[in-house]
């Protein structure tokens, strides 16, 4: 929670986003007024009327049943981790376990938010965490308010999926 999923989708969505923000009742865990309780939804218009759909899911573990729903039909996952959380590695581990089917094919990119105000753990620490799981996945410090950061993360995800495709032909 608080990693910036709603902001990230807003940064690239071509339509006014559908948000499902509600009052945050977990203020002890994270001090923000509202939080996502359903799907955030954004769209990017493609050729011939097709649409790239971007879904954001709530980060709290109690919403994990939604993660499985949104993963159906998804082609890849961007995990946004909030570096100001007490144990961001614990959060990341939960997401990696729950989106294992994407981890296994390399269809995951990890964005770490709020690194300016919370420089620890460092991005190098994230790579060490992944190495302990024998994983090499892209990890970037991102400012999701900047569309160029969000687009860079998306492009790296597309590249990871292309590599995965080429090797599963």
């Amino acid at each position: 929670m608080g990693a910036g999923k709603t902001t990230a989708i807003s940064a690239v969505s071509g339509i006014k986003m559908v948000k499902t923000e509600a009052a945050n009742t977990d203020r002890g865990l994270f001090n923000k007024a509202t939080t996502t309780v359903g799907f955030d939804y954004g769209e990017v218009g493609l050729d011939a009327g097709h649409v790239l759909r971007l879904y954001g899911t709530p980060g709290q573990r109690r919403f994990s049943f939604l993660w499985k729903i949104v993963a159906k039909g998804a082609i890849g996952v961007i995990i946004l981790v909030d570096n100001s959380r007490p144990d961001p590695f614990d959060d990341l581990g939960i997401y990696l376990d729950n989106f294992k089917q994407f981890v296994d094919i390399g269809g995951v990119v990890i964005g770490v938010g709020r690194t300016d105000s919370n420089p620890q753990p460092s991005i190098d620490d994230y790579y060490q965490f992944l190495a302990q799981r024998d994983l090499i996945l892209p990890v970037f410090a991102v400012d999701v308010r900047k569309s160029e950061d969000v687009l860079m993360v998306l492009d790296v995800l597309f590249n990871m999926l292309e590599v995965s495709d080429a090797e599963s032909v």
């Binding site: 493609l46 050729d47 097709h50 790239l52 998306l154 492009d155 292309e162 495709d165 090797e167 032909v169």
Partner: peptide, 21 residues
Amino acid sequence: KKPVAGTRRALFQVFRRALGI
């Protein structure tokens, strides 16, 4: 090296164009 034709490369290129990447 494997042929990439028939994979989703073309689809990702459409995404990139739409997003201005």
